[in-house]
Design a protein around this nucleic acid. Structure first.
Lengths: 217, 217
DNA sequence: GACTCTCTAGAGTATATACTCTAATAATAT
DNA sequence: ATATTATTAGAGTATATACTCTAGAGAGTC
């Protein structure tokens, strides 16, 4: 593998493990057994590394959120989107953690992330539209749709942070992929009242698969 | 005012303005025109300052979330809670920003914050119970209540972060108190389907007062 | 006036961090 | 083989940051 790619991979791994704030360029170099000079030959600075990782993340999410416009959506579609999005969230979980600081220090990233957010929100709305057409969710007032999508977005992107703060110990990376998936439980809770009555039972059923076991300890 | 209190006040102000990560103890001292030595005479370290500020925040929120148990709750109660909580959020807005890092570096704070979260979640559930009794919201399955409360909590505590990232410019502290209050719009959106039909119109009405003007730009 | 206790100044320190510079080595082209 | 280019090592630097240490000023007490 090219050194450049190794750097990106190691950075992502370390960021996810320890948080961007706790990982220095020297750490990354040391982790790979290369010199700082070598790292800076491939990247102008730390922000550049983060930005490239963001681009990968963005690409992945865009791929996950491709929505067929030639057919309505069903329950399996919805679950597929949820699983995919939380998968992406897991792979790049460092990102939403130090987000504000990252955006503060890289204008390019800030602009791109803003557009990214808006695209995601649009996709969520589109998914709801598809599900409405598919008879899974009830038709909602136009006026509510944007705010609903935003709430879904808030729950999804901040579930990880909540888990981390709710955990008793901070033993490195104590949040597991499974726990993250419990965010799906929260999103399904959110959607419950909007479902067509026929689907309520089925979704409640699916939802139990994601039930957190530790909540409220 | 005592130097000790001045330090707490100035720290809170600077943290809110620039983010905890961007404010050093030397900055705080310089801002007050006192020496670093003086600052460290009053506080053992930066974590201690943060911890004391957290205690104030906690006290404020606890005060706001006192819930009368001798009567059911009405719509005005609900709006009062929302307004209060978002007020507290505004006054200590730095806190939820670098939360994960703060908790990683102060075990005492982590434990306290965890308990704080659980108390808040319990309060939210209690408020829902009161509103149910008051005939404002429909009775929900026991099983849903915890997850609903958690979603409300997620939206409330992360609304600020969303605003910051959604903003185009990072011109220092460009998020206003009014914009923060638009989080109430989101929470009301969340609650909408659970309301008793009689209250729907009124809440929709109230909700328009908090409508964001910039969303989706 | 001597003594004590609280508070403050300010220079200073150890460590960390992002990043640079030079020289050398490996790879490739001619 | 030689020239050129891409890659790497590794020592080094400027700056920042959390925090320490010593000395001394004020205020109150005996």
């Amino acid at each position: 593998m090219k050194t450049r790619d190794k750097i990106l991979l190691a950075s992502l791994e370390l960021f996810n493990d320890k948080g961007e704030r706790n990982v220095t360029t020297n750490h990354i170099a040391a982790h790979l057994g290369i010199s700082p000079g070598n790292l800076y030959y491939h990247f102008r600075n730390k922000s550049d590394i983060i930005y490239e990782i963001f681009l990968e993340y963005e690409k992945l999410v865009n791929y996950y959120l491709e929505i067929p416009d030639d057919r309505p959506l069903g329950l399996p579609d919805m679950m597929f989107y949820l699983e995919s999005v939380f998968d992406g969230l897991w792979s790049y979980r460092f990102f939403h953690r130090d987000l504000e600081f990252l955006l503060d220090n890289d204008e390019r990233l800030r602009d791109d992330y803003r557009k990214f957010t808006n695209r995601c929100l649009a996709s969520i709305k589109q998914i709801f539209a598809g599900l409405t057409e598919g008879g899974v969710v009830q038709r909602q007032a136009e006026e509510l749709q944007g705010a609903m999508a935003l709430n879904v977005w808030l729950v999804i992107t901040n579930w990880m942070a909540f888990l981390k703060t709710a955990h008793a110990s901070h033993e490195s990376d104590s949040v597991s992929r499974d726990e993250l998936k419990q965010g799906i439980f929260q999103v399904l809770t959110l959607e419950m009242p909007y479902l067509m009555p026929d689907y309520r039972e089925e979704v409640l059923q699916i939802r139990t698969r994601y039930r957190p076991d530790l909540l409220g300890d």
